[in-house]
């Protein structure tokens, strides 16, 4: 993948006051998710009430940034034309160590992705903003 992801004119997030802490953290290279103080469960994506017990006592906590690849797809024909220069690229479903699953951009690793791969948060500038992308753990250790 030689394309400059940050130069893409891709659609950014539609942020509200409620979701702002998630994107503020993302801009700082962090992943923050909500946790319910009543039932103790993590919540992703952000909501005004806990989807498990409907409590409003939700607090933001930084996630470990560790995850596992539940599934992935190498996109050859993107659904949005702004992504065409980046194709083929990989998106995946990331089971966060905390529990919830999020969809994310998966950076290339030393080998093609496999379901079950260990992943690490890899903040990446895409379309003019830093997004919480992920990369395979092997790549992460190589870079250290």
């Amino acid at each position: 993948m030689s394309v400059d992801l940050n130069a893409l004119k891709t659609p950014g997030p539609t942020i509200t006051a409620l979701t702002q802490p998630f994107w503020d953290a993302a801009a700082q290279g962090q992943l923050k998710i909500q946790h319910c103080e009543d039932c103790g469960r993590p919540v992703f994506y952000p909501r005004p009430i806990c989807p498990h017990c409907w409590s409003k006592r939700l607090v933001w906590k930084e996630a470990s940034g560790k995850g596992r690849l539940k599934s992935f797809s190498q996109i050859r024909k993107p659904g949005h034309p702004s992504w065409l220069p980046a194709a083929p690229y990989v998106v995946g479903l990331v089971a966060l160590a905390e529990g919830p699953t999020m969809l994310s951009f998966i950076l290339p690793g030393a080998r093609p992705p496999h379901v079950g791969d260990a992943l690490l948060l890899a903040p990446t500038a895409i379309g003019g903003r830093v997004l919480p992308a992920f990369k395979p753990v092997e790549t992460a250790t190589e870079e250290k």
Binding site: S73, G79, A86, V91
Partner: peptide, 17 residues
């Protein structure tokens, strides 16, 4: 807000996953 910015637009990607 949470899928499209990562390059996931449309049903094809969902069913591919």
């Amino acid at each position: 807000e949470f899928d499209v910015p990562f390059g996931a637009s449309g049903a094809n990607i969902s069913y591919a996953l």
